[in-house]
Design a protein around this nucleic acid. Structure first.
Lengths: 146, 146
DNA sequence: CGCAAAATCATCCATTCGGATGACGCGGAG
DNA sequence: CTCCGCGTCATCCGAATGGATGATTTTGCG
């Protein structure tokens, strides 16, 4: 910025010097002072406008760009604790959401199907759900599972 | 805009007139042409800068703002047709995803529970699912439902 | 109109799910 | 040490779900 100002200052000085030359050169010949003043006014107005534009142009690039697609999912541990859902129950919940049957979940977690059922039943109670699809739906709404 | 330009034009004219008065008043007394030229240059430069600023100020409000959190969900009709899932079947699918039982869906859609079951069975077949939770999961992955 | 796809309803049967309840072991808090 | 929360497993039973199959009606389209 400082560089630019100095550059313009020097340019202005050069212009003034040039104008002086023109002044001495033509004024003594034929042109009146009125015309001379008009020319000076026009030139400096133009230079001023150009200068003003140059100095303010960079300010136009005020661009606010914010792009957000989809968060990677953050579990709502607060609500989780609030509902009293344990880690194991959450595991069963996730497996149910993935579409596994109680038996499959049992095999996957190395426990009996009965155990899965009790966990599931507790989850249903804590989520006030009567069906597993309902439990999954509510869990997703509550951001307990992705 | 036209009004502004005309206003500035008139103002410029008045300034020029004023300068002429100053010119005739002071030039005849003592000041040199150099000083006169400098004053004119300075004044018109200032006016020019001010004019340039005024004319370009409105352009500074160029703000590009793009905020996108989560898409409103676009159903993949292509895959839908690809799988041969009909509109009615999709309705049943959505209801299942919402956590409703076959009976509830039947009441909601004013059909018998048997009908819901057949629709559901077809959906399961088309999605290669054995359980409704699995069907829901796959439907969501395939962007058939939100 | 006449066909094909879709929607509707049904029956039978096996599996799965959900509800209620009881029990046992383990580890931490009081 | 004792109690409690959690995880584990079980049994009984009724409701819900899934599979297979057949039939009738409605609807869209050439």
């Amino acid at each position: 910025m400082m560089k630019t100002v100095i550059g313009y200052g020097l340019l202005g000085g050069a212009l003034i010097a040039l104008l002086k030359v023109i002044e001495y050169r033509y004024l003594l010949v034929e042109h009146s002072l009125d015309i001379y003043g008009g020319i000076v006014a026009a030139i400096f107005s133009a230079v001023g406008i150009w200068l003003g534009l140059k100095l303010t142009r960079p300010r136009e690039t005020v661009v606010v760009k914010e792009v957000r697609v989809a968060g990677p999912f953050a579990r709502d541990d607060a609500r989780l604790a609030e509902l009293g859902i344990t880690a194991r129950e959450l595991e069963i919940l996730e497996a149910m959401a993935a579409g596994f049957s109680n038996r499959e979940i049992a095999e996957r977690l190395f426990v009996s199907e009965n155990t899965v059922k009790t966990h599931a039943a507790r989850v249903f109670g804590k989520l006030s759900a009567r069906r597993r699809t309902q439990a999954v739906q509510r869990a997703k709404e509550a951001r307990l599972i992705p």
